[in-house]
Design a protein around this nucleic acid. Structure first.
Lengths: 235, 235
DNA sequence: CATAACCTTGTACAGCGTACAACGTAGGAT
DNA sequence: ATCCTACGTTGTACGCTGTACAAGGTTATG
């Protein structure tokens, strides 16, 4: 199947080219491949999404995966667009722009918390997918009441979404977190020796921030703090 | 050499454990390995930094690399800390906080433009390196005049640096950029067919933003726009 | 001089993405 | 009804990755 990525992205559109009539029917659809890849990434991380494991999970051979997806790079784009398409896009209604933007930010944060692997996908071609475009359109409308020209409107949205991305990155669980307690036990003494009395400000603020990060309420607090700043910046 | 990462990070500190006296001297130092890895990443991207290529570039065998660095993950941390250590940290002097923060942001943007691969390294252990700590301390002092408690001061710095990170990400050249013209030639027609008259706002703003991105002056303009917003948000 | 500690190296293994060719299956044309 | 052609499926194989392990060489120390 040498179908182009653009056609795979829009595979559910009426105008999309269908697979030829001849030969045996595919045992799985492109959509199924993408869905299985997403659940695999959700449960075991993006590194677990290998072509071989994907074939196993689908009950087909490794190489058959390539019948439905051109390669791993393309698969990642399809995955990202698919989760974008799942986002609820409720009408903005009569809400003011601050409420709208806040909702956009919260929805995007939830998206990243549900699918942390999105942070690892960085492919501009995602922008051409139906899910991504629908999401983009909806989010642009959140800024209707601010009188911004087109370029500024895009820049403002990017500003908000970049903030969300950074917040999600900060919340994401470090894969090394399990070993960190014992690692820290070995390191703390040595680091103190190296640091001595140098960089007192960094030592004080760093440990305060470190403890704050371990506090249960911290992420929510940091989120509210930052989001308020972002909203102020847009005004 | 089962030296811990923390000791490798602080290898130039007087209190750091030295290699034993017995046996042949190492033909290269850990610092040399890290430096060569950095130039390799600068010129060919992080993907080119493989243990084998590193050994070749150093004139030693593949496995000898492991004498100076515990593994690839650790190497990435050492690389990140090393470039952090290279940043100039001029005294803040009598400048106001806005000027200070602006300088911090500009320095970090330059760092990311010089070493785009920094965006791909995401390891919390980098925070314990001498270069990273010195940089952190210096940047915290940029906020001296704002009366912030420790946690808020860290949050404010993170806010600024996350913005810089996002700006660097937007400026970074897509590795697929070479093929993009011909790809777009094949895609443009199909995409127009799929979209039809749907999402008029997204189509208009998207193409405006796309053209703006190709304009020569655009990055600088977007940077100034965003940075001004960040500075306002801190006030 | 013997020993212990250290660096260096080659071989090997499991895993990855994927190119390629052989094979089987089913609709369309004759 | 038969042939042909397009298509899905699959196994094998290649080059690449990080790195575990064991053998060998080199040097300061007992």
């Amino acid at each position: 199947m040498p179908r182009e990525l653009i056609d795979l992205l829009w595979r559910d559109h009426p105008a999309a080219p269908q697979g030829g009539a001849r030969g045996p029917r595919s045992r799985v659809t492109t959509g199924a491949v993408v869905d299985v890849a997403i659940t695999l990434a959700d449960t075991e991380g993006l590194a677990a999404v290998t072509v071989r494991r994907l074939g196993d999970a689908l009950g087909i051979s490794t190489m058959s995966v390539y019948t439905h997806v051109n390669g791993r790079d393309d698969l990642l784009v399809l995955m990202a667009d698919a989760v974008h398409a799942r986002i609820p896009l409720p009408a903005h209604g009569t809400a003011g722009w601050r409420t709208r933007v806040r909702r956009v930010a919260e929805t995007n944060l939830a998206l990243h918390l549900d699918h942390p692997w999105l942070l690892e996908i960085d492919d501009d071609r995602t922008a051409f997918g139906p899910g991504t475009i629908a999401k983009y359109d909806h989010e642009l409308h959140a800024l209707d009441q601010l009188s911004l020209d087109d370029v500024a409107r895009d820049a403002a949205l990017t500003f908000v979404l970049d903030f969300v991305r950074a917040a999600a990155r900060a919340r994401r669980r470090d894969p090394r977190a399990d070993e960190m307690p014992e690692t820290w036990a070995r390191w703390a003494g040595r680091l103190a020796e190296y640091l001595g009395d140098d960089y007192p400000l960094a030592q004080r603020v760093g440990s305060a921030a470190g403890e704050e990060m371990n506090a249960a309420s911290s992420p929510a607090h940091a989120w509210e703090f930052g989001l308020a700043r972002v909203l102020d910046a847009l005004a």
